[in-house]
Design a protein around this nucleic acid. Structure first.
Lengths: 139, 139
DNA sequence: CTCATTGTTGACAGCTCGGTCAGCAATCTG
DNA sequence: CAGATTGCTGACCGAGCTGTCAACAATGAG
């Protein structure tokens, strides 16, 4: 459903959301706990930092932490950074740039209920929801 | 949402579904009508042929046609040929191979309604549904 | 049979994504 | 200041996806 990069981002953020607020987590520890390659994780966190979702501190005892409370970050704010089809609300068949009720493509009406459920999930679910529901259990 | 290849497959099949049953459509015409590159389309149709979704006839006056009635082909039979996450019913966060109600991942309960709507759409929508709802209007 | 037409096959090129690595920059400790 | 620690940056690589091309195989028309 989502690219590996989006999955990594959500997993890292879900882990950060389980920490005490303002507690710094080093990239090394975050990598170990989530099973995400350390150097690749650092690039993902950079993008999340530019988007204002995490804060990074360099130097000794530095690391990462959430820039906002977990319940203030809906998943779509994360995923749209890495998934073009989410940012563009793309049509199912790729026929039009935007596919609206007023200007539908062939598959629009069939696709509509699932599309609504999909974007409703992304907009109403927050980091708090996916971080408080169990353990991370990296693969 | 889907890869370009899946979108191409659905568009080509939707066009074939609008034709008279048993009518052959040449690859050249199919390519023109759908806006799909001719040579790439032929590879997609080969996969659809191996899956028993289309029939191909070579030689003069050959072409392609659906192997079954449009209402007998749910979209998931098409998409699962090209999308790994559909074939595997993959979990949202990529944490487990299978993510079930009995053995959920962190995001499972939040993701559940949207996931059900998504697979319900793929399993109940057929080529007839997406071919009878309007014109193809290639990009 | 001969030829044109059409689908099949295999090789290849360009691009993006996932991932690695080395060096640079900032920050804290002593 | 000196050194260690940590994040940042840029280069690079391999795999898979999208797309192109040329040669091959089958089929029907003449």
């Amino acid at each position: 459903m989502f690219s590996v990069t989006s999955q990594y981002a959500l997993r890292a953020l879900a882990y950060l959301a389980t920490q005490q607020p303002d507690a710094m987590v080093g990239g090394q520890e975050l990598s170990r706990q989530t099973g995400i390659p350390k150097n690749y994780l650092s690039k993902i966190l950079l993008a999340l930092g530019n988007a204002g979702i995490v804060e990074a501190v360099r130097g000794n005892a530095g690391g990462y932490r959430l820039a906002r409370a977990p319940n203030e970050v809906p998943l779509i704010r994360v995923v749209e950074l890495f998934e073009r089809h989410v940012a563009k609300r793309a049509c199912l068949l790729g026929l039009r740039r935007v596919c609206s009720d007023e200007d539908p493509c062939m598959a629009h009406n069939s696709w509509r209920p699932a599309k609504l459920a999909y974007f409703d999930f992304l907009e109403t679910t927050t980091l708090l929801d996916i971080s408080s529901a169990g353990k991370l259990t990296a693969p």
